[in-house]
Amino acid sequence: MKTAEDIFTLLSEIPDPEIPVISIIELGVIRNIEIINDSTISLKITPTYSGCPAMKQIEDDVRKKLSENGFTTIDIKTIFSPPWTTDWITPAAKEKLRKYGIAPPENSTEDKSWLTGKDKNIACPRCKSLNTKLISQFGSTACKALYQCQDCQEPFDYFKCI
């Protein structure tokens, strides 16, 4: 029988539908895996954002991957608590985001800017300059804010902390 670790490895092959450089495991949305037997599995997933359109895609991809690997009864439950936080994105995945051109989220315990209303300095993923400017709290997807580097002029997405 497959172990939860096997399933994690298997699901690590599924890329995030909107940011394909990281996997859904690295994103931290798979919260619990319970293998009942060789053909039955139960999973808990949590949405990144309430309206994130990728969640349906992620669920479909998980179903497809598991059914290709012998599971016939796949129960996927969406849970809200504890709410997803960018802290669950692994350090390695954060580095992948940066290389991809998306400034990775700071640790939310350190970044209180979303509470205090003060903009913090986000490093440009291209030239690493801290001389960057917030253009909009809301970028190309719900999880990102739009910044521009004042040195290299590159506009870039910042994966905002929640």
Partner: peptide, 20 residues
């Protein structure tokens, strides 16, 4: 454009909450 995106993102969150 940026404000269009911002309000659309807000809308998406609110509609998502409605679904939940």
């Amino acid at each position: 454009l940026e404000e269009d995106l911002a309000l659309t993102n807000i809308t998406l969150d609110i509609t998502g909450a409605a679904k939940s």
